[in-house]
Amino acid sequence: MTKRTAGNVHRLRSGASNGLYALLTLVLAAGLAWLLSAQLNYFYGFFHDHIGIAETIAEYGPQNRFKDDFETTDRAQRITLFAEIVRAVHSDGEGLKEISYRAAGRTRAVALLHEAEIIHLQDVAHLIGATRLLVILTAMLWAVWTLAKIRRKAPFPPLTQQLGKLLGVSVLIAGLLGVFGFEAVFYQLHIWVFPAEHQWFFYYQDSLMSTMMQAPVLFAYIGGSIAALGVALFCAITALLHRYSRKNAGK
């Protein structure tokens, strides 16, 4: 093998290694963004006010076939209800049956969710548990790889170099959503992920859960906010590690 060939092989290996490390960092950043967003109630209060959720509740609340007067609830109660759902699905579904709302002028609380909704949210809770485990395993692998690079004094690539890989992933995702549409992708993922015998699609007239979440519209905005936060974390992690490796290169 000539020196030129050996150099090309080395560059290919280095590029592949950096690419895999960037992908792992991106997955870690997305996972951290998701966990942080969950702590912030997925920004539900902001989206309630700005994407038409209040108007959706006002229109479809009176049409609900199972529950009455949900449209009389106020913003604060809806934010609390959403937070209780978030807390339940991040706790293996514990407390879903106890979530209730109190309509204006009523003394008795009404259970928010009916049986099919509870079953679906329990499935969501199982999925979240598996995803959380994946984030933990990703974090462990990333930490081991990062420490190994630090011990070998291997350089971390600059952010400008890694942004190209990030752009590639972003273009791929945007392309898929552009071709198929968010709703089609969203529904297909539900078909693949959730048990076929469990209901996961609910008309607004049949589900206060779907109404107060303006499904699937809210999830597009939540996904976008997690993606934006994930990109910011990815950039911060990459820039800090590159700065660290440059600072310690000569030591």
Rank of each mutant, 00 (worst) to 15 (best):
K3C: 15
R4Q: 15
A6L: 14
G7D: 11
S14F: 10
S14K: 11
S17F: 15
N18D: 01
A22D: 04
L23S: 13
L23Y: 05
T25E: 13
T25P: 02
V27W: 04
L28P: 02
G31C: 01
L32V: 13
A33G: 06
A33N: 03
A33V: 08
A33P: 05
L40H: 07
L40N: 06
L40P: 10
N41C: 09
Y42C: 04
Y44I: 15
H48D: 13
G52A: 02
T56F: 11
I57P: 05
Y60I: 01
Y60M: 01
G61Y: 11
P62K: 07
N64V: 12
R65P: 09
T73R: 01
T73G: 05
A76R: 11
R78E: 09
I79F: 13
F82M: 12
E84S: 15
R87D: 06
A88D: 04
A88Y: 06
H90F: 10
H90T: 14
G95M: 01
L96I: 08
K97C: 04
E98K: 04
Y101T: 05
Y101W: 10
A103C: 06
A103D: 14
T107R: 05
T107F: 01
A109L: 14
L112M: 13
L113I: 07
A116L: 12
E117T: 08
E117D: 02
L121S: 02
L121M: 08
I128R: 03
A130H: 10
L134S: 14
I136C: 12
I136R: 11
L137K: 05
L141A: 06
W145S: 06
A154V: 01
F156L: 09
F156H: 05
T160Y: 07
Q162C: 12
G164S: 07
L166K: 00
S170L: 14
V171T: 09
L176W: 10
V179A: 14
E183S: 03
E183V: 06
E183C: 01
A184Q: 11
F186M: 05
I191T: 13
V193L: 15
F194P: 00
H198G: 05
Q199S: 08
Y204S: 03
D206G: 11
L208Q: 06
M209A: 02
M209T: 14
M209H: 13
M213G: 08
Y221P: 03
S225I: 13
L233F: 02
I237N: 00
T238F: 08
A239M: 06
L240G: 09
L240A: 15
K247N: 03
